[in-house]
Design a protein around this nucleic acid. Structure first.
Lengths: 229, 229
DNA sequence: CAGAGTCGCTACAGTTTTGTGACAACGCAC
DNA sequence: GTGCGTTGTCACAAAACTGTAGCGACTCTG
């Protein structure tokens, strides 16, 4: 599963450059032009990493940090700050901005990539494990294996990604469109009903007769993964 | 106890890459960006092995060698040099730089690991792990031999390194690109599908009719070596 | 209760991905 | 040079997976 990166940058040229290079590096990228937009998108896409420019219109970068940290869903998302040289660099380090690292402009892409990898590596193992467990279902993303109470579950690539995404946000309802964006990719066009089919396949693979279906259908809204209660 | 490795490399991207891979391989890694830093850290952490780039800012790699050798505490620490092709390779070998071995860039990770183990084994027997076993498969890296339940397996060099790498990280799925980076070298250009062919050859050599195939194909993701359960 | 909307499921044709045999090129020992 | 083992690439076949359409069941609304 590609790590999702949210870029918060008002300067168009830089934003585009970042998006282009990050995607080439294998990240799923979304861009926000200002702080408000950033907070909204962060809620929607729940990124694995946020890249925030220190200077932003409306809501400053540092404020974006604080707000992200303040919210349940995004409290643990790693943040990297982009600052211009001399832009209170010391205070960035000194103050508890909530950022996990910062990069001073101008920076090279390789440098940025190195920081990103370092942060993801540092933050992720502690918070988001390679292994997710919900009820009796275990998903090991490194080994690419899914088990339900010691029974090995075989899933196709798409079903795997779908389950991955759902398990990562348990309880939350996603519309078919949201799932298409997140699991298929925001640029492919597929029929919304296709999601139904894949959910069906996923259910068939996951459940035996006795077992409770962990995927909940919400009529005219979408699907959600429920942790056993 | 994990062997401690000090990496002295100014190029950020390479340093990060080395750190990442070495840690995954089970080493405790610290990184120094220049010669001075290196000497300081060497004093602090007294590493079991030092990896030095030949070209460094401030204090050259060869100078780092000399100084490390000149100091009581670090006089016997094994050193491996990283040199670019053509970078006075002969003199590196010829002169007594104090290095125990050297690797010519570009190199594959498995090659580097092999050198590291070799040096550690020579200097600090006991720190290097020479034999890996997984299920009924045994791989002796010193003798360069592979056995499956007392049956001798003949492998070509590439298949050997491939199996080595896979067995080193059992259960984990690697993409073709990752395998190319790790086994072939990070910059040689070979077709990704070539990995398939080598996996095929490896399987043919490893398995008889009765035996379970230890290599698992993960569709649209890569391959993994599974320890028998 | 009719009609519209929504969802589960199946079948299937099309596409993507993987396994494999053949082959030419290469390096190396002799 | 000759011979042998190894390597990377290609082409083709097999296997796995995907998206869509279509039908019936069910639900909501008026």
């Amino acid at each position: 599963m590609k790590p999702q990166v949210l870029v918060v940058e008002d300067e168009d040229a830089l934003a585009t450059l970042l998006q282009y290079n990050l995607e080439k590096e294998g990240y799923q990228v979304s861009v926000a032009g200002d702080g408000e937009d950033a907070l909204m998108q962060a809620e929607e896409t729940t990124p694995d990493l946020v890249l925030v420019d220190w200077m932003l219109p409306k809501v400053s970068g540092i404020e974006v940090c604080r707000r992200l940290r303040g919210r349940q869903e995004t409290a643990n998302v790693p943040i990297i700050m982009l600052t211009a040289r001399g832009e209170e660099t010391d205070r960035v380090r000194g103050l508890d901005t909530g950022a996990d690292d910062y990069v001073v402009k101008p920076f090279s892409m390789t440098e940025l990539f190195a920081r990103i990898r370092a942060v993801l590596r540092r933050i992720r193992p502690g918070l988001a494990e390679d292994v997710i467990t919900a009820g009796d279902i275990t998903m090991d993303r490194v080994a690419h294996r899914v088990k339900r109470s010691d029974r090995e579950i075989h899933l196709g690539p798409t079903e795997f990604r779908l389950l991955d995404y759902l398990m990562q946000h348990p309880g939350r309802v996603f519309s078919r469109e949201q799932l298409l964006d997140a699991v298929w990719g925001s640029d492919v066009y597929v029929e919304a009903r296709t999601v139904d089919v894949h959910v069906g396949r996923l259910r068939k693979a996951l459940n035996t007769k006795e077992e409770r279906d962990p995927i909940r259908t919400v009529r005219s809204a979408g699907y959600a993964f429920d942790v056993n209660a």
